[in-house]
């Protein structure tokens, strides 16, 4: 709806208003280390950490400033009496991915464990960053099928997927649904390579089965894979605030900072419990 508000203003303003550069002073900003790290129990290739550097907003350099030569360790933890203790004797060192500056990965084939806490510690450029996440208990996809619907305007049948899952009883479960189509690559290399369809908590369907269907049709002949990822609250807050910030706009909108769970920097350390299903969109 912010686009409606913005549209109104734009239409109003183009009547008489002018546009000009605005060059008054801005707040000083030195930049921070930005972390985008994922681990999951299902797809080892999608466990990675990207390090970059934030810059002053009007810094003329528009490229990503990757951060190299970082030391990254990940530790498993257990919760006892509300306190987390970390297995520091068996830390996983994440190494820089060859020829991809700023990308760090665990040992080949390593995967996180379901229902487990993780601590990530990063040492880079004389700074120490840390973050905690939990890979929650897996919630599986219950059903995935194609619903063929007639479009009267196009005078044709169009395929819409229908996916359902059952939310465990008790508030506090958080989900993201990702999707890929089989095309250029069969398997995605990063979570950013996938279409994140939604991120939601279970406020409105706690303990119930919940279904999803795309607003726009799929294409017959495609192979589509869905990834239902459960995540902890901090990761969910990152994504929720991320989406709000991306959709936030207009001249009078409230500014919003993306919520971070990184101590000493910005970004997210996101633990995911992932269930994936693939479906071929076949003509009826």
């Amino acid at each position: 709806m912010k686009r409606v508000h913005f549209l109104f203003l734009l239409v109003a303003l183009v009547v008489v208003a002018c546009n000009a550069p605005y060059d008054d002073d801005l707040p000083e900003y030195d930049g921070e280390i930005v972390v985008e790290a994922y681990l999951n129990q299902s797809i080892p290739l999608l466990n990675y950490c990207l390090l970059s550097r934030s810059v002053a907003y009007y810094n003329p350099n528009l490229d990503v400033e990757q951060v190299s030569e970082a030391s990254i360790y990940v530790y498993e933890g257990v919760e006892e009496n509300g306190e987390l203790t970390w297995d520091r004797d068996n830390g996983q060192k994440w190494e820089q991915f060859p020829q991809l500056l700023g990308a760090y990965v665990p040992a080949f084939g390593w995967a996180a464990k379901e229902n487990t806490f993780y601590l990530m510690e990063i040492e880079v450029e004389g700074k120490n960053l840390s973050a905690i996440t939990q890979v929650p208990k897996l919630v599986e996809i219950d059903t995935l099928f194609i619903d063929n619907r007639f479009n009267s305007v196009a005078d044709s049948v169009e395929p819409f997927e229908r996916l359902t899952f059952s939310d465990p009883k008790g508030f506090g479960n958080n989900y993201a649904l990702f999707r890929t189509r089989k095309g250029f690559f069969d398997n995605p290399l990063t979570w950013g390579s996938m279409r994140r369809i939604f991120t939601t908590d279970d406020e409105f369907f706690d303990g119930n089965s919940w279904g999803f269907s795309s607003f726009f049709p799929q294409t017959y002949g495609d192979t589509v894979t869905f990834y239902l990822a459960s995540m902890d609250k901090a990761s969910y807050r990152f994504w929720e605030s991320y989406d709000v910030s991306q959709n936030n706009g207009g001249p009078f909108s409230q500014p919003i900072n993306v919520e971070s769970n990184i101590e000493g920097g910005r970004g997210v350390f996101c633990g995911l419990a992932v269930d994936r299903r693939r479906i071929i969109i076949e003509k009826p």
Partner: peptide, 14 residues
Amino acid sequence: SMGRFFGYLGIDFD
């Protein structure tokens, strides 16, 4: 606006 960073890095094959 004070600063900026890039997020959700990836390549869209969707």
